[in-house]
Design a protein around this nucleic acid. Structure first.
Lengths: 119, 119
DNA sequence: GTAGAATCTGACACTGATGTCAAGTTCAAG
DNA sequence: CTTGAACTTGACATCAGTGTCAGATTCTAC
């Protein structure tokens, strides 16, 4: 599929898709004329990338991480190096703290919302 | 207390504390010479501000929200306007989705970490 | 072959919180 | 009074992902 369709189906802008490729996160075949041509599983991959971005990982880490992910359709996954595992554990911890933070903020919002919807 | 101590106790840089003041998030008295002087409850407030930043709210929204928060020590809280409530509900929803995203990413990381720590 | 839609590359802008540096002022203690 | 630490304002830089625009090329359908 071409970039426009991929963008539509993932909700990610074409600009970002090209950026992902530039960062080594997303590969594409090319048509004879040079247009990008993506396989079906690119959809899942892009969604995964977006999740990881949303989780606060930078593109470099994602690039290291992706080859180790057992894709739905993908081939054999690479095993993470001990060093990468260390990094990922740190990320995991960070995400854990972030979730806790989000919960607290949600509680804060709830209080204010509650107070406003009370007589 | 002065800005240095507040920074130390909250883990937030002096730069950021001044920025918060500039954005109307954090008030301070001034000494005769112009140095900022914070009350004890500024500590809680700064921590709360950080949480909200971490939750992805921008300073403008936080500025609207803060007066409606019943501070631990604070006086009477303002009731949120219906419009603000709408905004906050949207933020709440966004945070909810973010948490779901983070969970998925955490699961992804776990898979990779697991796979690497297996024979 | 031609028109119009889609895509290409490359460059520059933005956002928003924070880092950093400079030059000057104030504070606290000797 | 002096000295060094702490503080002040203001300006400019950074980061990373994304938006946007321009000019050229390719694709698709008639």
């Amino acid at each position: 599929m071409r970039i426009g369709e991929l963008a539509r189906r993932t909700g990610v802008s074409e600009r970002s898709l090209r950026y992902y490729e530039q960062q080594g996160l997303l590969a594409s075949e090319r048509t004879p004329g040079g247009h990008r041509d993506y396989p079906e599983r690119a959809v899942d991959r892009v969604i995964r990338i977006q999740e990881l971005f949303a989780a606060g990982l930078c593109s470099k880490k994602i690039a290291q991480l992706l080859p180790c992910i057992r894709d739905h359709d993908g081939g054999p996954a690479v095993t993470a190096t001990p060093w990468l595992v260390q990094e990922l554990l740190a990320e995991r911890e960070r995400i854990h703290r972030t979730i806790a933070d989000l919960r607290r903020s949600q509680a804060t919002l709830d209080e204010v919302i509650d107070a406003a919807s009370r007589p």
